[in-house]
Each structure stands twice: as structure tokens, then as C-alpha cells.
Design a protein around this nucleic acid. Structure first.
Lengths: 237, 237
DNA sequence: TCCCCGGCTGACTCGCGAGTCAGTCGGCCG
DNA sequence: CGGCCGACTGACTCGCGAGTCAGCCGGGGA
């Protein structure tokens, strides 16, 4: 190992050591108190470093969140892309794969997922620094394309809007995770997590795949076999 | 109309006139810039009233959001309760009814729904003001109970976790609405909305009902015109 | 040994925006 | 008509917390 290598490597890892410590602390604090609900001082204390050092590594508070979002999200997206764009896998497997990726991410780092879901994906953002939910929307679009492709090969019912399918899938996954994140599910064992994952993936697939259910396209036209009066409509006087 | 009635009604509505104006302005501003991204001054300007008047009607900024959440959410929950707890309706109809309620709310007041979804349901806030997401979780629990009951009558596959079903349904609906809220769906016509609603409800049902398929019941065709009498989904009390 | 350099420190500044309050105005009652 | 009451106003206060910066070490090189 040459001196240069050693030097730069050491320096690099040492520098990143601190940087990472701060990032880690930021994730934990954001998860606990929310982005708006915490001060930089909290992050510094959590990281065990001086207040000013945070500003040595990050331009400002916003960049801190930005970086958390960036790193966390890019990992998820690249993994998801591998799944969604694999040539030989069936749609079913892809969907299961995506659920896998999401739940695995939660298993590995629940707090980071919490921040990603609560602060990034749903940032109310009026001005919203673009990269934020743009990345999120990008993931949905990617899924939508996957579904569109699946439609052309007949793997997906053709009467569904791909974009809506993507929303449905992500909504189900996200809300499933939220149930854990928010403590709605009291049992957070790995087994419970796995069960949830499977249920979500399978229920989604049942609802969306063609065949099996006879009523696919036909049912859209079929007459109502009146199951009681259901006086509701989309219009209001 | 008795004098008392008239009097109190007038007084009530006059006082509330201002109050409502401010509330309305708050919803619009929150929807546009987010809760944290706006100042009380913005709300006052939007409402066309003096800065101080906002504090005449609301204790502080938080109570403003609280009130927005309260009113918007209670309307939704009570409507949803009527649907979820109706004795004679099938699970299918209940699910469709819930989707109806949600999408109707969006049709009537998209901005309020945006605020509810973005600022209330997912308020990142660690622990604070309970009533916020507690109400949201309450709705999920209500749905979970509905699903549990449906399981006991065999209307729902018994291998599913009711709580998870509820999460799935809400996740799908919420994300569907989010797709509109965030502009992911470019077509926001009432028809597109209706299509989305139906797809979500039907996909969910297919995925979750026992047996081969949901009893093919495609009643949305006539739904569009059945508007005769319908006491539900008439936003704002 | 001493000096220099850069990671590191934390007390300080300063702007922003929530919340206050002394005062105005119009309407109603005696 | 005069005095009271309460909705309404908006300039002001003040605390909070983001961001700054002058200076402090500790290690490495001369």
C-alpha cells in the first residue's frame, strides 16, 4: 500500500467518519422529533460533536435533510430498479421483489425509513427543494412503466391505469410500513414484518393480475346483481 | 322560524362568518405553502383581515391547524362510520362506500384534503398534539374492526390481518389521492377521479375477498346517474 | 523543538415570525 | 345624545434557533 493511498484513504475515511456520525445522528433525531421539531444543537449533541462542526460538513440544516434523503433514497431506488427492470422475471416476482426491498430496508434501518416516509416522501413543501419528492415520484413512475410493460405482455389486466397501479402498490407498502412506524402494529418481530410483506404483495397481486378471477374485463360491463340498494353517487346537488 | 332561532342563528353565523373566512384562508395557504412554510400574516392577508384578528378567533397557530384538522377529519370520519357500521350492507359495498366518501371529499374540497393528507395524517411531529394523527389512526382502527367483523361472517379471507387490510385500503386510497394532489395524474377531471376510485376499490376487493373473485358487480355505470336522493357525502356540516 | 495547518469548538449575532396590547371604530342601549 | 362594549387593527416585543467566526488544540513536518 503506497503512502499516498494510505494517506488519502485514511483521511477519506476519517473525514467521512465524522460526517457519517453526524448523518446518523440526524436520522435518529429527525425520526424522534421530526425535521422541524429539532434544532441543529440536538443533532450535534446526539452525534457528540460541537455545534459548529455540523456546519463544517453541511451547508445548512436543509442540506442535512437533503443528504439523508439522497443517500437513503438512492439505495432504495437502485435496488428497486434492478428488480423492476430485470428481463426474465415475471410481474409477480417483481412485485414481490419490490415489497422485499422495502421491508428489508425497514428491517435494516427503521428510523431511516421513518424519516424517508414522513419527512421526505410527504414533505408538504410549498417550495420543496426539487430533489425531495421528485425522487419519490420518480420511483412511482418507474413502477408505472413496469406495469405498462406488463400490460403489453398480458401479465396485467389491461383495464387498469399503470400509474394508478403504481400508486396502489406504493400506497399499500407505504401504509403497511407506516403501521409499523407509527406503532399501530404492536408486534414488530421480523416474522410479523414478513407476514405483512407477504400479505401486501399477495393481496395486491390478486387484485391486479388477470385471469383466475373470471370477472376481469367482462365484469366491467356485467349488469349489477343488486346486492341491496346502494344510493350513492359521485354527484351532489 | 322563531325569533330565538333566528337571532341565535344570525349571531352564530355572523361571528362564524369571520371565523370561517379565516379558516378557509388557512386551508388555502396551508395547501399552497405548507403549515411550516407560511406565516400568520399570510393567512391574515389571504383572509383579508388584520393580523391580530386571527388571534382573536384562534389561540395560536397550532390551534388553527388543529381546527382545520378537526373539522375536516370529523366530517370524513362520521361519514365513514355510517358506511362502515351499516348493518345491512355487504363488505364490498362498505369498501366502495369508503372509497366514495374519500374521493367525494377530494372532489368537493381538494385543498382541504391536501392539507389533511400532507399536514395532518402524516404529521412527522414526534408525539405532539395527540388529536392529530390519533384521529387518523382511529379511522384505521375503525376499518380494521369492520374487516374483523367481515371475517367472522366469512366475507373476508380469514388468513389476513384485519389491521393490515385496513392499512392496505387506506394506503391505496391515500396514495391514489396523493397522485392527484401532487399532480402525478395530469388528468384531474371528475371522470378520471371516478375511474381511479373504482379501480382502487375493485382492485382492493379482488385482492382481499375470499373465493375466486368478487361477485362481479359493476354498478358504477348507473352510479353516475343515480344521483336522486343521497344524504351522504354532502361536505360541510 | 517550534510552528503551521486544518479539524474542531461554542459563545455570539441577528433575522424572523409568533404572539401581545394599547388603541380605534361602529353599533346599540339607556 | 353620550357612554359602553366588543369586534377589529397593526406596530411592537421578544424568544428562538439558524448560521458565523475568532480562536483553540493536536499532530505532523521542518
Amino acid at each position: 500500500m503506497s503512502p499516498q493511498q494510505r494517506k488519502s484513504e485514511e483521511a477519506g475515511s476519517r473525514e467521512n467518519e465524522r460526517r457519517r456520525t453526524i448523518l446518523r445522528a440526524a436520522i435518529d433525531v429527525f425520526a424522534r422529533k421530526g425535521y422541524h421539531g429539532c434544532r441543529i444543537a440536538d443533532v450535534a449533541r446526539e452525534a457528540g460533536v460541537a455545534y459548529g462542526l455540523v456546519y463544517h460538513y453541511f451547508k445548512n440544516k436543509d442540506e442535512l435533510l437533503e443528504t439523508v434523503a439522497e443517500t437513503g433514497w438512492s439505495g432504495f431506488v437502485s435496488r428497486m430498479r434492478t428488480v423492476a427492470e430485470s428481463e426474465d422475471a415475471s410481474l409477480e416476482d417483481k412485485v414481490r421483489g419490490i415489497a422485499d426491498v422495502a421491508f428489508e430496508a425497514y428491517r435494516v434501518d427503521p428510523r431511516a425509513v421513518k424519516v424517508l416516509i414522513l419527512e421526505v416522501a410527504r414533505s408538504p413543501a410549498g417550495g420543496h427543494v426539487v430533489s425531495r419528492q421528485q425522487a419519490f415520484l420518480g420511483a412511482i413512475r418507474m413502477a408505472a412503466e413496469m406495469f405498462a410493460r406488463a400490460q403489453s405482455t398480458g401479465e396485467l389486466r389491461s383495464d387498469l391505469d399503470p400509474m394508478l397501479c403504481a400508486s396502489l402498490l406504493f400506497g399499500a407498502i407505504e401504509m403497511g410500513l407506516t403501521a409499523f412506524v407509527s406503532g399501530l402494529m404492536e408486534d414488530r418481530s421480523p416474522e410479523a414484518l414478513d407476514r405483512a410483506k407477504v400479505q401486501i404483495a399477495e393481496s395486491f397481486l390478486r387484485g391486479v393480475l388477470p385471469g383466475a378471477a373470471p370477472s376481469a374485463e367482462a365484469s366491467w360491463k356485467q349488469e349489477k346483481q343488486s346486492s341491496g340498494t346502494r344510493p350513492k353517487a359521485g354527484k351532489r346537488s
